[in-house]
């Protein structure tokens, strides 16, 4: 355990100093995207990976976060930091409303319902003039400051903010996994009827998972809005964004604490690199590779990269004749 803690502290320190050593703006941009997707995906994993309810509509929470903070700022000059929290609360309320019909459904039906609801909400925003409609909203430039959540001279502050937010999200996942809540979630994933028979209020805990997931995803959305300074329904709540969030988690390993980060570490640099190498003619080529990777992972390693690493560790320990903790394999 102590070894693990030291490893984590070293990792965080490296992440903290990395952009100070290698300062290229593009490099920092990629790091920011990595942690942004890792965070959204980690939030998704609480409901998708741990509780087993595959949502393809998480982009709506992302969008709600982005829109809430932006609108509060535009109309009442509320700092995005407060807007971020309000956005989280709004997302939780929407999650509870959406969950009401959606959680009556299982498997494919739940998945389809989340896609449908996502498309309905996106359509509403596209045709709603008060929130900028299809044209979207430009966030006006203000003086660079932490309070304004705007930094123009360097990307570094954005990096440290998203790194911190990601670590907080990771800690939430960690404590959920270690607590009774995590066991409830996993019990629902493995066999909902059995979980119910054991006295777990399955419906309630699905709502809990969805609400935490929505809150954290909305916070990612606010960050994204402040980072790009422009939002519209097709960039902050499209189906493709929901998909990307899910892809990161599948590749990394659903239901594993490190899964989303691993997935993000592979997929985001891949997409940014192909964008640079192939230019605009190759736009979308990274998705060709994504598609192939997802197929291969599903066919040969359904537990994702994190599952693969754990399996490898497990076999190594077993080969060495050491003590094996049987509970760590949970494919």
């Amino acid at each position: 355990m102590n070894k693990k803690l030291i490893f984590l502290i070293v990792a965080v320190l490296i992440l903290f100093f990395l952009p100070l050593i290698y300062k290229a703006s593009f490099f920092i941009h990629v790091l920011i995207l990595i942690f942004m997707f890792a965070m959204a995906s980690q939030a998704w994993d609480l409901v998708g990976g741990y509780t087993g309810q595959i949502s393809f509509g998480n982009a709506i929470f992302f969008g709600i976060g982005a829109y809430t903070s932006t609108l509060l700022y535009m109309h009442w000059s509320v700092t995005p930091w407060i807007g971020m929290l309000v956005g989280g609360v709004v997302a939780v309320i929407v999650a509870l409303i959406v969950g009401y019909p959606a959680f009556k459904l299982k498997g494919h039906y739940f998945l389809l319902a989340t896609i449908g609801i996502g498309e309905i909400i996106r359509t509403l925003f596209l045709n709603w003039p008060a929130v900028g409609g299809a044209q979207g909203i430009f966030i006006p430039f203000e003086k660079e400051s932490f309070w304004n959540f705007q930094f123009h001279s360097s990307k570094l502050p954005y990096y440290y903010i998203i790194l911190t937010l990601f670590i907080l999200t990771f800690l939430v996942s960690y404590f959920v996994e270690k607590s009774k809540l995590g066991f409830y979630f996993k019990a629902i994933r493995e066999d909902e009827d059995a979980a119910k028979a054991m006295g777990i209020h399955t419906q309630k805990f699905k709502f809990v998972a969805f609400a935490i997931s929505a809150f954290l995803t909305a916070i990612t959305g606010t960050f994204y809005a402040q980072y790009l300074m422009y939002i519209d329904p097709n960039s902050v709540m499209p189906f493709m964004l929901s998909t990307q969030i899910v892809l990161v988690a599948i590749l990394g390993g659903m239901g594993y604490l490190f899964g989303p980060l691993l997935g993000s570490l592979v997929l985001i640099p891949l997409s940014e690199l192909t964008r640079v190498l192939l230019g605009s003619s190759g736009s979308g080529f990274h998705l060709v590779i994504y598609g192939l990777l997802i197929m291969l992972i599903s066919m040969y390693k359904p537990a994702g990269l994190a599952g693969w690493i754990q399996e490898w560790n497990f076999n190594k320990k077993k080969a060495a004749g050491g003590e094996v903790d049987g509970t760590t394999i949970n494919s």
Binding site: G52, I54, G107, H108, L111, T243, L247, I250, M254, G282, S283, G284, F285, L287, V288, Y290, G291, L292, L293, I294, M295, L296, I297, S298, M299, P302
Partner: peptide, 21 residues
């Protein structure tokens, strides 16, 4: 079941983006 959902999903992402490319 999750792998069964995602395998054809991967196929979709692959085919659609190959056509785009």
């Amino acid at each position: 079941p999750v792998a069964q959902i995602f395998v054809t999903f991967g196929l979709m992402v692959f085919l659609e983006n190959l056509a785009l490319f």
